[in-house]
Design a protein around this nucleic acid. Structure first.
Lengths: 123, 123
DNA sequence: CAGAATCCTTAGTGATACTG
DNA sequence: CAGTATCACTAAGGATTCTG
């Protein structure tokens, strides 16, 4: 690595703190397809609760990953959209997806081997 | 994105499930420098508890990111080392580190702006 | 040295009910 | 529609003690 270890650690930790939770990533993926309204997201992101969608969007908005636009209609209509920063992050995440796809078999095999050799543990 | 959304979501989620916790990343970064013994890691990874180091290493071992070698000395000596899979993951993580470094300013600015406009909330 | 076992606290999350 | 407010729960992590 070119940077120092602590630098790398901190840098990546910051990203993970931002996207490492349960719902930020699925929301990013959904928004990558284009702007979405609140209810659309709720339906599009499978399994998310209304509360967690709100919290996740607020956090993303705070970090500048998402822009929130309120249209003064009745009833209110709110649109969420990835910012350029959010889009650039999405692209980096594809590298991660690529790695996962490439190494899935290896990891699965490793886990199977582990279970064989450690029949006692629950993981 | 070239793959489907659910594919991407699942792929990245798998990675995040593996490295998104509090300690896997710092341990990877430490091990990237070379093989380490248990106590070395405990000292090298700042703030980690003995328990969490054990749990983290077990998980990484199970997933094939780390190889554990026991030397039958007295007292026992155990060496941990990144596998090729673990090394390849480290490299992907640099892309993430790169993104973080590039966008840190933007994110910090966004948070400052957020705090100005939302003096009430605690985040 | 390299752990295992136990207890405890808290943050993250889910479910539910209510509102402008 | 787009949220907010509460409550309850669980799992991750920390502190401590013990051991081959």
């Amino acid at each position: 690595m070119s940077a120092t270890n602590t630098e790398v650690t901190c840098d990546v930790r910051e990203v993970l703190d931002r996207i490492g939770d349960r719902w930020t990533l699925p929301v990013i993926v959904e928004l990558f397809q284009g702007p979405r309204r609140f209810r659309q997201l709720e339906r599009g992101v499978e399994g998310i609760s209304q509360r967690m969608l709100t919290l996740t969007l607020r956090k993303m908005e705070r970090d500048g990953l998402v822009e929130r636009t309120v249209y003064p209609t009745v009833p209110a209509q709110v649109e969420y959209e990835l910012t350029p920063t959010g889009r650039s992050l999405s692209e980096v995440l594809q590298a991660l997806a690529g790695w996962a796809a490439e190494h899935r078999e290896v990891v699965i095999a490793s886990r199977a081997r582990w279970r064989e050799q450690h029949p006692d543990t629950r993981s």
